[in-house]
Simulated assay, not measured.
Amino acid sequence: MSFARVRALVVVGMLAVVALVFVVVALIRDTQSNAGLAEGCPEDWPRADVTLRERKDVKINVMNSTERPGVAGIVGDDFRNRDFQVKKVANEKKQIDGVAVLRYGPKGVGSAHLLRAYFLGRAKLEYNPEREDDVVDVVIGNGFQQLATTTEVNQSLGDLGAPVAPPGSCPVTDEK
């Protein structure tokens, strides 16, 4: 074996050792090992699931709160065609002037964040810490025109950022 080859093997060996040392130090000094575990939160605060769900995992109830009949059915079908789990379609007596209202509990934070993108961030959020289920109520208002396209949803999700736990709750993720 020539001297140049031995020197190259020594250099590559030294680089491998240095890389291994960096990896071990990074793992030991990792300060995010408990991220998403809600440490430091008061015991009585609800744990808000801030995992951004896939459409097929999001359960919704669609309610018409407009003066136009049949809007909930149309929007419900639109959501079904986009692979959402539409549980109930109904009318609500009280009309709202905005685009939509999303009502949800601690288990529906990530789902509500995704749904908000379908209204381009213009849906009003109503968080209820007492709510036990992971279903989000989508209440359609008089300002609603149509759901966003896939491209618009992706852009809106980028604008909205990551889901955030509502005040008075602790963020947790349900990563598998």
Rank of each mutant, 00 (worst) to 15 (best):
L9W: 14
V10W: 13
V10L: 15
V10H: 08
V11T: 08
V12D: 07
G13S: 11
G13N: 03
L15R: 01
A19Y: 05
A26I: 06
L27K: 13
R29Y: 10
R29N: 13
T31K: 14
S33N: 10
E43N: 09
D44F: 08
R47V: 03
R47Q: 07
A48M: 08
D49K: 03
D49V: 05
V50W: 03
V50R: 04
L52D: 04
E54Q: 09
E54P: 01
K56C: 03
I60W: 02
I60G: 01
V62C: 06
M63G: 08
S65I: 05
R68K: 15
P69C: 06
P69G: 06
G70E: 04
V71Y: 00
A72H: 08
V75M: 01
G76D: 05
G76Y: 07
F79I: 00
N81F: 04
N81P: 00
R82C: 00
R82M: 07
D83S: 12
F84R: 01
V86W: 00
K87Q: 13
K88Y: 05
N91R: 09
N91H: 01
E92S: 10
E92N: 14
K93V: 12
Q95G: 08
Q95E: 11
I96S: 04
G98A: 11
P106C: 11
G108L: 03
G110V: 02
G110I: 02
G110T: 00
S111A: 15
L115I: 09
L115H: 02
L115S: 04
R116V: 03
A117S: 10
A123V: 04
Y127M: 03
N128G: 07
E130R: 14
R131Q: 11
R131F: 01
E132K: 15
D134A: 12
